[in-house]
């Protein structure tokens, strides 16, 4: 059974990518001059996971060398990146609803089952979660934010991300065609 074509015929067209990029850049600039910090996403996911793990095994999490400091006298969720992620979810959902692009489904190519596509998503998520902690951020916190700040390490991260992506792309293309 083939996946239905996307975007659905009724949905609004995407915004011009250059216009969307300028809007994103102005959002990042506003973050620099108000928060004094850029955008981020992976930090919030790690903090959410740490809070969930803490509910199950508080001693182990607080004793962990990487996660422990997030719990010293505070909650890992009382952090600007967590609130930003809640905002991204709300803004993304609102925009998808208004553009009639919100629909519960698994996006995939015709030759892979929904379950198969979910396996790709889980494997990719495990890797991306691990790697973003190693690198200290992701496409938002390193590539966009550090890129605009002209950070050496962020540009190295961005180049490495594209290298890794292009190298692995042929191996995982089956999920799309």
């Amino acid at each position: 059974m083939n996946a239905p074509p996307l975007p659905a015929p009724r949905s609004a067209p995407y915004l011009n990518p250059y216009v969307a990029g300028i809007g994103l850049g102005l959002t990042l600039l506003t973050a620099f001059v108000t928060l004094g910090a850029g955008l981020g996403a992976s930090g919030a996911i790690a903090r959410g996971a740490a809070a969930a793990a803490h509910a199950v095994a508080p001693a182990a999490v607080e004793g962990n060398g990487y996660l422990g400091p997030w719990f010293q006298g505070t909650s890992p969720l009382a952090h600007y990146l967590v609130w930003m992620a809640v905002g991204v979810f709300a803004g993304g959902g609102l925009s998808a609803l208004l553009a009639r692009r919100a629909r519960v489904h698994v996006e995939r190519g015709p030759r892979v089952s929904a379950r198969g596509r979910l396996v790709y998503a889980v494997v990719g998520g495990l890797l991306a979660g691990f790697a973003s902690r190693m690198a200290g951020g992701c496409t938002s916190g390193q590539a966009l934010t550090g890129g605009a700040l002209l950070s050496d390490g962020s540009w190295a991260f961005t180049m490495a991300t594209f290298a890794g992506g292009f190298a692995a792309a042929p191996l995982v293309r089956r999920q799309w065609r």
Binding site: Y120, G124, A128, A131, F157, A163, G165
Partner: peptide
């Protein structure tokens, strides 16, 4: 981390 992240991005 960037290399691994890129692999995770295209896979997931």
């Amino acid at each position: 981390g960037g290399l691994l992240f890129g692999v995770g991005f295209v896979t997931g």
